[in-house]
Simulated assay, not measured.
Amino acid sequence: MSSSPHIRDNMTTSKIMLMVVIALLPASAFGIYNFGVPALIMLISTTASAVLTEYIYEKLMHKKITIGDYSAVVTGLLLGLNMPPTAPWWMGALGSVFGILIVKQLFGGLGQNFMNPALGARCFLLISFTSQMTTFVYDGVTGATPLALLKSGKAVNSMDMLIGTIPGTIGETSVIAIIIGAIFLILMGIIDLRIPGTYIVTFVIFIGIFGHFQNPAVGFFDAQYITAHLCGGGLMLGAWFMATDYVTCPITPKGQYVYGILLGILTGLFRLFGGSAEGVSYAIIISNLIVPLIERVTLPKPFGKGGEK
């Protein structure tokens, strides 16, 4: 926290988290429409498990019950949106328990976790159940995601990726639905453009320059190739809803720009030169771990004794 004077505001943690939940509803609704009842069951499973885990832990530890701040709801909902609709419900529930108990509560609860709990849970599930977490079915057909096709040099339909009629996780497919939620958060003053804007611009520059080296058939700054990368995978969901997590992103303005640049470079590296077609989750988690260093370097120096004159 910066030094005084401070501005008083009636905004509370519960109000902020509730607005994030509202902003996630378009992506959730489209995911349910796109993938049907299995998506609804998964979202209920992850959200209910996250809230229940937080309540039981705090009850057993004789701590103040904090499920009313909706942070557990946000964690569960985000994890559900990052799950394949074909994964069993218990897998999502297990991920929520890990995210809330291990990543969040054992490090002190809300405000003390060192990485985004939802992404920590997703990476835990990716490592533990790789096959189920990377198998996608759309319209009854098992197939590769557009990013996987793109990585193998095949053509993809960018319009389908924009609308969301593609295989993928429950909440990442429709860019339109995600942007609607993001605009709501911006208008409500919950997030600004520093982190997501810097993230996306850096990623576009990286993909525009190095996409040719990964796939020689792609020209420098190929518009269709860049658009497909922007619409594919969890980039938009991660940039607007997870990279902007108050707890795990820098609080300094300069630090937020550095953080966004780091996210864009890491995501580009993982997508183009890594073994997987996706890389958003790992990019955000690695950047979360570097946030203390970013803040230390970008912390404004005070004027006066011992500071700049």
Rank of each mutant, 00 (worst) to 15 (best):
E308Q: 12
S152V: 04
I190C: 10
K59M: 12
Q112M: 14
L185N: 08
G234K: 09
H229N: 15
F220C: 06
I180M: 13
I207K: 06
T202N: 09
K305L: 11
P5C: 01
Y225H: 14
A144G: 03
A155T: 15
L52Y: 06
P302D: 09
I191G: 05
V73K: 00
I67G: 00
L266M: 15
L269T: 05
M115D: 02
L269G: 00
K63W: 06
Y199D: 12
P216L: 04
L110H: 03
A39V: 13
T252R: 10
S14K: 15
L81F: 11
A182Q: 04
W89N: 08
D192K: 13
K254P: 00
I195H: 01
M133P: 04
M83F: 07
Y246L: 13
V280L: 05
A243G: 06
T75M: 08
E278C: 00
A243M: 06
A27G: 11
F203N: 03
I7M: 14
G92P: 00
G171C: 07
M242P: 02
L187F: 13
F210G: 03
F206P: 09
D69G: 00
L125N: 00
G120R: 00
G279Q: 04
A277H: 01
D245Y: 02
G268W: 03
A223D: 10
L77A: 02
A217P: 03
C123A: 15
G168R: 01
P146W: 13
